[in-house]
């Protein structure tokens, strides 16, 4: 009986297996890279704004506190985008002829806010409360990154659920002392002992066991 497969069939079989293995590896690696890249999450991309506002200038160089403009964050769920009147508090006297600030003057005269584009747009099924975080000492740069260094404001990292949970499972290192929520130079605590961790949680009445409940963020 004649052989069904010629000797060359062996080579073809090996080649096909090799190609399949390579294809699987390439798919997995490129998928992983894409998943963790900024393409999917818009990290480091600054959306176009009505005015090229620089946090580096206002917060970094001029050392204006975050709450000067975002003044509802301590008491309400939303930090609030500044009204055009807030901008005009200074710009009624400074850079009054600047072309870049024309939209600010126009909005102010028309009695409306500027239509700022959200940099961090959390999904609508996520409930985030600024006041709840500031109240226990989770400060601005902990989530928003080094805003004081951003000429145009961008997402400093991907706001994934996993990233939120990292802190909700172990919030102690990010709990700042009283009065430091808007400090730019505060760094998360490292090398905390279990006792120190518990003391921090207790001082701020934070209960991690409740922070991972679904309804903490999805309500």
């Amino acid at each position: 009986m004649a052989q069904v497969f010629k000797p060359s069939a062996d080579i073809i079989l090996r080649a096909v297996i090799l190609i399949i293995v390579i294809a699987v590896i390439v798919t997995v690696v490129s998928g992983w890279l894409y998943w963790h890249s900024g393409w999917l999450t818009d990290v480091a991309e600054a959306p176009e704004q009505p005015v090229p506002f620089s946090h580096r200038h206002h917060a970094g160089d001029l050392n204006i506190d975050c709450r000067y403009c975002h003044y509802t964050g301590e008491e309400t769920a939303k930090a609030g985008l500044p009204t055009s009147e807030t901008c005009m508090t200074c710009h009624s006297q400074l850079w009054t002829e600047a072309e870049a600030l024309r939209p600010v003057r126009q909005a102010y005269t028309e009695g409306r806010p500027l239509w700022w584009q959200r940099v961090v747009d959390s999904p609508d099924f996520v409930y985030f409360n600024h006041a709840a975080h500031l109240d226990v000492g989770v400060g601005c740069t902990t989530c928003h990154g080094p805003v004081q260094e951003m000429a145009l404001t961008y997402e400093s990292h991907a706001y994934t659920m996993g990233w939120c949970l990292d802190c909700h499972r172990d919030p102690a290192p990010n709990l700042r002392p009283e009065g430091a929520v808007t400090a730019f130079d505060w760094r998360p605590r490292t090398g905390l002992s279990e006792t120190e961790r518990q003391a921090l949680l207790e001082a701020r009445d934070v209960h991690p066991e409740r922070l991972t409940d679904c309804y903490t963020c999805h309500r």
Binding site: L62, C90, Q93
Partner: peptide
Amino acid sequence: ERFNIYCAPCHGVAGHGSGLIVERGFP
């Protein structure tokens, strides 16, 4: 705390009227 957030940019941290915004040209 409130003074340093809202007033100090112009009035200065000690209230002499020479905050950073004044140094940048605000009356």
